[in-house]
């Protein structure tokens, strides 16, 4: 059976803890990504093994096992790097959290995410989808065109942004809306 859905579920549940552990060992984004990939491959192989040997199943608890495996990978790679006398450099951009794209025209600037969420739910589903793909998933315009099977999605994204800005700035807010808070 195709196990992709198992690995998807595992990574959705544990990608944050795995990345936290890796970050404890590596500041370099490239190394960290490598370790993350290795951990993913390791889990996939383990799942295949477990399928073949049902006795393994009862011994494993998901989170402790995955964290342990991640730590072991990190230690292994650290040792190898020490042997090769590689130098690391600091990179604060490692593992950026899922936040909207930040730029000078950022529509989310000055608004707290909770209020953006409240405004977003008032948009039509298509507009919400466009905003989500562009700003939440940070897809390129070309990718969005492919995903949605449309052309010139940038035009539609612009329109969706205008609608969102309008809701955030002037009104049409839900009754329980507590006002948007401008951050310092």
């Amino acid at each position: 059976m195709n196990n992709n859905f198992i690995i998807n579920e595992i990574l959705r549940r544990f990608s944050d803890p795995i990345r936290m552990v890796i970050r404890g060992y590596f500041n370099n984004k490239m190394d960290a990504d490598d370790v993350y990939q290795n951990v993913t491959m390791h889990i996939m192989n383990k799942i295949k093994l477990i399928e073949q040997d049902s006795d393994l199943e009862i011994k494993l608890k998901s989170k402790p096992y995955i964290i342990r495996a991640t730590k072991n990978f990190c230690i292994d790679i650290k040792r190898k790097q020490t042997r090769n006398q590689k130098k690391f450099y600091e990179d604060d951009s490692v593992f950026e959290t899922k936040t909207p794209i930040q730029n000078e025209n950022d529509i989310f600037k000055n608004f707290k995410t909770v209020n953006i969420e409240k405004a977003l739910i008032q948009l039509k589903e298509r507009d919400r989808q466009l905003i989500a793909l562009r700003y939440y998933k940070q897809k390129s315009i070309k990718d969005i065109d492919t995903i949605l099977g449309i052309t010139n999605s940038s035009v539609y994204i612009d329109r969706a942004e205008v609608k969102l800005k309008k809701i955030l700035a002037v009104g049409k807010l839900p009754d329980d809306f507590d006002g948007f808070i401008i951050e310092d």
Binding site: K98, T113, L120, A132, Y136
Partner: peptide, 24 residues
């Protein structure tokens, strides 16, 4: 969520994180 650049136009599928963007 949608798998990378997946286009399931032939089936009636909704991706929750696009239907309801989950910033927080």
């Amino acid at each position: 969520e949608r798998e990378d650049n997946q286009n399931d136009s032939d089936i009636d599928v909704t991706y929750l994180d696009e239907f309801y963007p989950m910033f927080n």
